[in-house]
Design a protein around this nucleic acid. Structure first.
Lengths: 191, 191
DNA sequence: CTAATAGACTAACAAGTGTTAGTTTTATGT
DNA sequence: ACATAAAACTAACACTTGTTAGTCTATTAG
């Protein structure tokens, strides 16, 4: 990963700082210091602080959209679709630990891209809910409020970035399996 | 609720602004404007911006600690204890929608109270995990990693503040029951 | 070797930051 | 009606903010 553009490096480092303190609390001088340069020099590579935030967030948001489209268009059962979505979150989150924090917390500070971001997110949530409703209609899933179900599952998946780095060894497949088990079957022991 | 101190009013309004934009992005002038006063006048009622954040966060954090202590010292089964914790989160979250955002996002900006806050939180998580482990030992709960279980349940509960206000009618008992069902039994239909 | 370009630098800007000091207004209790 | 206290105000402070302009330097291409 050493053919990384200087711009990409700035964005990567910015994402890390944004995770630690939030977009608003990170100054261009903070970012510059971490990059071992002066604040003004950053502008040889990026146009504005806002642009950094946009790139961090929209890049990841689009990955989720693409993933959801793939899952939606498959012929799997609803439960399998759900498992694939869980795997999608584990994958994207583990590869973008810092960026996920910005996506979850700092999207409110988007300006020009706020609308597009919200569109992607609400489309995603609608697709998610649709899968749950299909599952209920097909008798695969309990007929509880799909809203509450989606909220419960999706907030867990959206918070993965907080938690993945705490695991000593990140065994992604095992994590995906454990999460699927818990989110789908619950925690209660069946006899 | 009209015998509310002016200080309490400031804190309540601040919590709402903190939820919308985050602690760092809210200026004392923003807060003053919302309160229909000038920034300097705020200081007749509070000592600093930091103090506002402390009061918002620590107040709620202590409610959770007290609640957990009560649950812990009961003689209920682990499943019942879990249900009581779920009810605790629904109750505290619904009564402190704005404050919960600060607790979840802006605790990083605590200064003097950062240590005490982290202590309360890690104690809470340890107690939570202990309940799960007891449940596993007693055969009530599936022997999956208690870490993953706790993460899954707790992040859902911690995100309630994002979601409760979206419900048209907030029927708290029904929400508590639905959440218990989903978090404990999962979403799959049993035959 | 020279010219060109990328990318660092210094200096500065206009606006915004939390907060303080001192003053005036408003409400309260006798 | 008047003294007192609570709570608003204006003005200002020292500092920080994102960003721009202009310059110097090191690497690269011909």
């Amino acid at each position: 990963m050493e053919n990384e553009t200087r711009q990409e490096e700035i964005i990567r480092v910015a994402a890390k700082l944004f995770k630690e303190k939030g977009y608003s609390a990170v100054t261009m001088r903070d970012l510059a210091t971490t990059m071992n340069m002066k604040a003004a020099s950053l502008y040889n590579h990026i146009n504005s602080k806002q642009e950094i935030l946009e790139k961090i967030i929209m890049r990841i948001a689009r990955k989720f959209s693409v993933g959801m489209t793939t899952v939606k268009s498959s012929n799997d059962s609803c439960i399998v679709k759900l498992k694939k979505i869980i795997a999608l979150h584990v994958e994207v989150s583990s590869q973008n630990i810092y960026g996920m924090a910005a996506l979850n917390h700092d999207w409110v500070h988007l300006e020009a891209q706020l609308g597009p971001y919200k569109k992607l997110r609400s489309d995603y949530e609608n697709d998610f809910k649709e899968i749950l409703k299909e599952g209920i209609a097909a008798g695969e899933i309990s007929p509880i409020k799909p809203d509450v179900m989606m909220f419960s599952i999706l907030t867990t998946l959206r918070s993965l970035y907080l938690w993945i780095p705490k695991k000593e060894v990140i065994h992604l497949e095992e994590l995906t399996n454990n999460l699927s088990e818990i989110l789908i079957n619950g925690i209660i022991k069946e006899n």
